[in-house]
Design a protein around this nucleic acid. Structure first.
Lengths: 225, 225
DNA sequence: AATTCAGTTTTAGTATACGATTTTTTCTTG
DNA sequence: CAAGAAAAAATCGTATACTAAAACTGAATT
């Protein structure tokens, strides 16, 4: 069990939603889970904190990150900016085999949705954008996009509307078409709107449904203080 | 002396070239420097490794990163892709005060060059790109660019030609002009070429001048094996 | 004289131990 | 009985101790 294994294990547990935002990540507790001392857990937690997947409150411990509404908007806006450059480069570099891979991912995505497997579908949605970044042939870019996508996964986990995973259905195929056409500007435009659609499909009205603040939890009582 | 202080201290020592690429970063040694145990050095080293500023070889220790020629090309290519999106967003968002800040940085840069203060000039060059990212008003993007720029600093430190820091002189003012004109495409184009110019000004012929491989060090002897 | 191998020293990686701080529990008091 | 204070438990952060691997030294051998 290497350090990266521990990291990946926790990372995936969070992204897959098996660990809820705000949940406490105790060092000794995790150490017992993985059969190591907390000495090896701490660096992993710090790395996850660097990735904004967890937050570390001094002397209080690590918690699964709970991005605020502003964080959510900032990450999405960042993706619009970054992935504009990415899809432009991808459009310039795209070969038929690349498009084939993208189409395959969309197909699997569709399949997962049909099977009502929202988790898998969501993961493939992220995979699509990562694969898009890979078309550029640049590992640095691919890694950057991967990080942004994973941060966005947390956001979606927190703010996704109950009955809305159909939103990005056409979005990805549209992106592929634009890339295939070689029209860089059209592709960039489509990407910005696609990400904006994802954003708009979120319920950013309250500060996260899970573990809400007391004020919102008891809002139905009205303010009496 | 907080953890971040230690991190920044080592980070800046590397970026400023006070620690040469390839140099060993012993845990106990650094611990003594900062008056702490290696327990607190290790996470810092790992964080720097995440940032690709140092490399950690298992059971051998940490060393100041020595990006290969391929790494150098990849980081520059990544910047071309990422910063295309950034300058487009910046062009759309730019206000007069932003341009003023950029022009000021260029002026300071020019002053530093006149004073033959290459280090300061180089640092301001990076600062220019970070400030450009800040125009987008997005902290996530700004942070991303900052990381890429710092990685590039290492590359430049390794591969810069002895007498060539004049290269990007006109580049930045040109970028400002394009942003001011509001012509997004022109700005994006200028950015790509500016970064390509920086790249071309590097001496990527050998695998780094400092501490070269034995093969290149004794190349003048010819191959006799 | 160069090379290899054994012994020594150094150093990375990990666990344990300990002090400091927070959280929880319990006890007191109005 | 509720609220606050004090004590106890739990847990974070750091240093120290230990183990194992790598680097170094030097002698022996070809």
């Amino acid at each position: 069990m290497t350090d990266d294994d521990i990291h990946r294990e926790i990372f995936e547990a969070i992204i897959d939603g098996r660990l809820e935002p705000g949940e406490k990540l105790g060092q000794d507790e995790l150490g017992k889970v993985f059969g190591v001392s907390k000495t090896r857990i701490r660096p992993v937690l710090h790395r996850l904190a660097d990735q904004k997947i967890v937050v570390i409150e001094p002397m209080r411990g690590a918690f699964v990150a709970r991005p605020s509404v502003e964080d959510a908007r900032a990450v999405n806006a960042a993706r619009q900016i970054i992935e504009e450059g990415v899809i432009r480069a991808a459009t310039r570099a795209a070969k038929p085999r690349h498009l084939k891979i993208l189409r395959q991912i969309v197909a699997e995505e569709q399949g997962a949705r049909d099977r009502r497997d929202g988790g898998h579908a969501h993961r493939l949605t992220g995979e699509f954008h990562c694969e898009l970044a890979r078309i550029t042939g640049n590992d640095v870019v691919a890694e950057l996009v991967r990080e942004l996508v994973s941060r966005d996964s947390l956001v979606v986990a927190l703010y996704q509307r109950p009955a809305s995973s159909v939103c990005s259905l056409g979005g990805h195929t549209d992106l592929i078409d634009k890339i295939a056409s070689g029209d860089e500007d059209a592709a960039a435009h489509a990407m910005r709107h696609h990400l904006q659609d994802v954003m708009d499909s979120l319920d950013l009205g309250d500060e996260g449904r899970k573990a809400p603040s007391l004020a919102t939890a008891f809002a139905h009582l009205g303010s009496r203080s």
